[in-house]
Design a protein around this nucleic acid. Structure first.
Length: 271
DNA sequence: ACATTGACCTGGGAGC
DNA sequence: TGCTCCCAGGTCAATG
């Protein structure tokens, strides 16, 4: 489900309710996420104040005085702010109850997400340690992309979706950014020239910023922490539009598979 | 070091 | 209605 704009939307939605408040209790109803949810979360978190809420890549980080709760939404996860104790549904795997009466509810039908704990700096956690730069920071640039792409045979789409190169770009925004930059998604990464890398880095930033402004993309089940959908779906140029005419030139969009993921592009605009 | 594939899990839609 | 098959926003682990 969520790529960077959806996680960022979630962050903005939950942060005001969490930061500075204390955790009254944590209820875990299903430990079987991507990795087992630690058993001792309740004793670790009970009574602790959440000093900060951050996002790194697609991870949300809730920091307390004794460590950090690391949350990943996987493909189908979401977090909601509840103002009343609504009865939990089938896929509501975890509730964090705060002393201000608010409940942070974690829902994830496919259970590819994660709830993990670290008592060290979260950036040192094995899952976060070797991640690439944030796409919206200056460290991510055309020059950076050119250097990472050099000599690689992997399709450029796979490269920009690799979190060890740059974080936050998933299947939707990879396709959208490549369309924006007019680059064929299957082009071997090492074949991109300097100009194309600059265009692509700029296109990734532009696409992600626009999506964040729209509150992310709702396909079926994503919604912000307040239950409202994201409005970027109406702005999608290629994702989910195979067979429809290109908005730029009218050529029917094509769908291919790259790295097991469906990939839509315009065969005329993206060469 | 790199490239490719499988794995995890549920639900929704298409087709019969 | 109900069955089977395919697809889905992520990314790690295992293999060559």
């Amino acid at each position: 489900m969520p790529e960077l704009p959806e996680v960022e939307t979630t962050l903005k939605g939950i942060q005001p309710y969490l930061q500075g408040n204390s955790i009254q209790s944590i209820t875990v109803r299903h430990r079987g996420l991507r990795w087992p949810v630690p058993c001792h979360l309740n004793s670790l978190l009970k009574g602790k104040k959440i000093s900060a809420v951050h996002r790194r890549a697609k991870y949300l980080l809730l920091t307390t005085s004794n460590g950090t709760l690391i949350i990943h939404l996987g493909m189908s996860g979401s977090l909601r702010i509840l103002h009343h104790a609504l009865p939990p549904q089938k896929h509501d795997h975890c509730d964090l109850t705060l002393n201000n009466g608010v409940i942070l509810r974690y829902t994830d039908p496919r259970r590819f997400g994660a709830l993990l704990w670290t008592d060290a700096s979260p950036t040192e956690h094995p899952l976060l340690r070797s991640l690439g730069p944030e796409p919206l920071e200056n460290a991510f640039s055309g020059a950076f992309l050119l250097q990472k792409a050099a000599h690689k045979k992997t399709p450029i789409k796979s490269l920009i979706m690799d979190g060890h190169i740059v974080v936050g770009v998933g299947n939707i925004y990879a396709a959208e950014a490549l369309f924006e930059a007019e680059i064929h998604p299957a082009l071997p990464a090492g074949q991109l020239n300097k100009t194309q890398c600059s265009r692509l880095a700029a296109a990734i930033k532009k696409t992600l910023r626009r999506a964040i402004r729209a509150g992310g993309t709702t396909l079926r089940d994503f919604s912000g922490s307040d239950g409202r959908p994201g409005y970027f779906r109406q702005k999608l140029q290629v994702y989910g539009r195979a067979g429809e005419p290109c908005n730029r030139c009218g050529t029917p969009l094509e769908s291919i598979r790259i790295g097991q993921r469906s990939t839509v592009f315009c065969p005329a605009c993206q060469r």
